[in-house]
């Protein structure tokens, strides 16, 4: 939707509203391994998620693209970007992901937002202790 003031004057600004218009969703996730292992590279991490999606939805259903925008190897956290159409599939695959190299693991979804910027200023992470 788009709006501007009806008369040419004296408006000084224009207001546009983009309702549900974001193409992507962003997810901040963390991988928890039972073994406490930390040496997983970014590529392995993405491969793990890709195979989780394929396992759950098959070759065709799982054939959607997502990006690993950043990955912190020491904390095993990552920010993913996915098209809205793939969000539910990706999220469900992450939820059901239970093992890595035959060891138990879990994925914690920490924050999901249609704005990447929102992930950089989450007030729930304001820790004063």
């Amino acid at each position: 939707m788009r709006r501007a003031d009806a008369t040419e004057e004296p408006a000084a600004f224009e207001r546009r509203v983009y309702r549900n218009a974001a193409a992507h969703h962003y997810m901040k996730i963390g991988l928890v391994l039972e073994s406490g292992e930390r040496n997983i590279g970014a590529v392995q991490f993405k491969q793990l998620i890709v195979s989780a999606v394929r396992d759950l939805y098959g070759e065709v259903g799982g054939a959607f693209n997502f990006d690993v925008l950043c990955y912190d190897e020491s904390a095993l956290t990552a920010v993913l970007r996915v098209y809205n159409s793939g969000l539910v599939k990706l999220w469900s695959a992450l939820t059901l992901l239970g093992s890595y190299k035959n060891k138990l693991c879990a994925v914690r979804v920490m924050q999901v937002s249609p704005f990447l910027l929102a992930l950089s200023g989450n007030s729930r992470e304001l820790d004063l202790d």
Binding site: M1, E14, R16, Y18, R19, N20, P114
Partner: peptide, 17 residues
């Protein structure tokens, strides 16, 4: 817009001056 008072979906408002 009255209908937009509670958009109910993620919304971006842009104002350019």
């Amino acid at each position: 817009e009255i209908s937009l008072r509670h958009p109910r979906v993620p919304t971006l408002f842009q104002l350019q001056g």
